[in-house]
Design a protein around this nucleic acid. Structure first.
Length: 318
DNA sequence: AAAACGGACAACCGCTTCGCG
DNA sequence: TCGCGAAGCGGTTGTCCGTTT
């Protein structure tokens, strides 16, 4: 690996920009606009590739760039949007005037992520981290693991293992829901929000997709939360031998495209900006986050981004 | 004082998406 | 509908600089 030399094979400059290059670029764009980035360097008299020019302009030279430390409010926005959108830096940046996707990405990677990890919060799911490996060890008897290891072919066993993991995750979510209910005590709202988000990220207990019209305006009843039976009784108890109706990473189509409820403001580009840190964001769409392998399953725990970032205020207060 | 280390950030690479002929 | 070029985007890396030993 390693960084490329400061000139590529065509003799184009790479690496840090000089003040002279900056001046040339700014002068040209102020006069002509950027037009085609590919053509720009030649027209502006720069020995750079168009990509490099675009990058320099959008992330550094643009006049509306806000530099300096991120405010608490900006942190809050990033946290909320990241819990909804995941690593969609450019989309997050659209909601932070003067900030670039690169800047936000760096801020996240160098500061926010670390903060979350220090607080035992999974930066990918925004959920409190738990020792999933330990959970797995309890759920998968050692004998079964050995059997899995001994068998061939590996492809088949990989599929089998995924089923085991799916089951483990399901049981783990059940525990989470129950914990949330217990923690919330009489405060059913919080428990319901947790439950709604967890349930909406799961396959329907009846093995059918939730009606999209219900998802657009999810209510407790539409999600089956007002039925007579207790919540935890509605969650099917899958075992590894049972057929799972859908792969675990399947999400009902209720990601960012749907107007979740009145607490989210639909923006022109289809994004949603929470009006307040609560309630929780909708789960990510399938394309934005999916669990493909056991390693992912571990790193993302069982929340799949559907947990409410109710800890955000706490986090920012710390 | 100097070397080692680590954090922050600028910049690049390569994949994906979009728009147009 | 398809192919191609341009632009967008996210992940990764290199360098600078402050801090620690």
């Amino acid at each position: 690996m390693g960084r490329s030399p400061w000139c590529d094979e065509n003799g184009l400059r790479k690496g840090p920009w000089t003040p002279e290059e900056d001046k040339k670029l700014v002068k040209y764009i102020q006069k002509h606009g950027h037009g085609s980035w590919i053509a720009l360097p030649k027209l502006a008299g720069l020995n750079r590739c168009g990509k490099s020019c675009r990058f320099r302009w959008t992330n550094y030279l643009r006049p509306d760039i806000k530099r300096g430390k991120f405010s608490l409010e900006e942190e809050q926005i990033i946290l909320n949007l990241h819990s909804i959108l995941g690593n969609k830096w450019s989309r997050i940046a659209r909601h932070l005037p003067g900030r670039t996707d690169n800047e936000i990405k760096n801020f996240w990677n160098t500061q926010l992520k670390k903060k979350l990890i220090e607080m035992d919060i999974d930066p990918m799911t925004h959920c409190p981290r738990t020792d999933v490996l330990a959970t797995m060890a309890q759920l998968i008897p050692p004998a079964n693991l050995k059997e899995l290891m001994d068998r061939q072919p590996w492809e088949e066993e990989a599929v089998r293992l995924q089923e085991v993991i799916q089951s483990a995750k399901f049981q783990y979510i059940q525990n989470l829901v129950q914990s949330a209910m217990a923690m919330a005590g009489n405060s059913n709202n919080i428990a319901d929000m947790v439950a709604i988000n967890l349930l909406s990220s799961m396959p329907s207990p009846r093995g059918t997709l939730l009606d999209p019209s219900q998802l657009e305006n999810p209510t407790q009843s539409s999600l089956g939360l007002l039925d007579a039976q207790p919540l935890n009784d509605q969650i099917p108890h899958y075992t590894p031998s049972q057929d799972l109706p859908y792969p675990w990473d399947f999400m009902p189509p209720m990601g960012n495209e749907i107007n979740q409820d009145s607490n989210f403001t639909q923006l022109s580009d289809g994004d949603y900006t929470p009006k307040s840190p609560l309630p929780p964001p909708p789960p990510p769409t399938l394309g934005e986050r999916s669990i493909i392998n056991p390693a992912d399953a571990c790193s993302s725990s069982s929340c799949d981004g559907s947990c409410p970032p109710f800890w955000h205020d706490l986090f920012l207060a710390s």
